[in-house]
Design a binder for these strands. Structure first.
Lengths: 158, 158
DNA sequence: CTTATATTGTTTACTAGGTTAACAGGTTGG
DNA sequence: CCAACCTGTTAACCTAGTAAACAATATAAG
């Protein structure tokens, strides 16, 4: 039995006992992000692309011959962090590094046909999972959410 | 001269060259979260509390004698992940583990006065940094953002 | 041309923030 | 009394990065 101490009689689950955390945008943003990320993995399966690989492949498919430095800038991460992701995607046969005639430092990235179709398939799954996650949202709410998140991203380079 | 050239000069950032990523909620949520998290650290300094420790301390201050299992549920992480955070906060002298008379398995957590005031200070800094990050947002937009993020969190236990 | 500076991809070591599985000790329901 | 279940904890692991150094290459300045 071991009932709680008298001073601690109120239950944690009560709505009127919310912590400061619930009012903070950063905390709620994080929790929301975790929900999406978890569902992303579920949608693409245990052997499917991870979020990072998916994002990188999206850019390579969209911008053939993009370089790793450009990718790093577009994704907002360091160049060094890209290497492992590119290695993984090359290992799957989804893209390859190709030499660029004018500049021998650069390794441009090009998606294979297998990579393009794997990406198209993954994109559909991701869109479906997002649609389901936001099933309770009206079109206006979705538009508003997209707008507000984009607006936050504008503050990126301050 | 200024009008046409200016808009043509932007290359990758243009709307007509956007990747699919820009339309995905998960990706934008992640980027927004990164922006907040980075600014959080800047606001609290190199030796300040990290986001995890801050969140845990917030709950301990708000709910004295909360247990680690209850914390894990509230924060949405595993019990095992809490140990290091509690150790850190105990090491800083911000809280301590206390035995609970009725149940010898449990170690209830109580914030010290030092912990409470460090938390109050940190909370103020975090609120200020969020205010600044969202300086371009109207009150309606902030309310809407808070509402939408909370709504996403409702899908947590599906 | 030559020298200084910058850029590109890469490796290595490190950090943050978790998870999963196992476990000992303590509690509780049948 | 015993089986099942909680609690905190450790250990090993995973994801997603950063920071610093480096060789090869490219570009700018004198």
């Amino acid at each position: 039995m071991a009932s709680r101490n008298g001073s601690q009689a109120r239950k944690r689950e009560d709505h009127d006992t919310a912590s400061d955390l619930e009012q903070l945008f950063g905390y709620n943003l994080k929790r929301a992000y975790i929900i999406f990320q978890t569902d992303f993995r579920k949608a693409l399966g245990p052997d499917g692309l991870g979020p990072r690989s998916f994002a990188l492949l999206a850019l390579v498919v969209r911008f053939p011959n993009i370089t790793q430095s450009e990718l790093a800038r577009a994704l907002g991460i360091e160049r060094s962090g890209l290497v492992a992701i590119v290695d993984e995607l090359e290992g799957r046969g989804y893209l390859h590094r190709v030499a660029v005639p004018g500049d021998r430092r650069v390794q441009a990235l090009v998606a294979t046909t297998e990579g393009s179709s794997a990406y198209a398939d993954a994109l559909q799954r991701v869109r479906d999972h997002e649609t389901e996650l936001l099933a309770d949202f009206t079109d206006d709410e979705k538009k508003m959410l997209a707008h507000l998140l984009q607006k936050i991203r504008l503050r990126e380079d301050d």
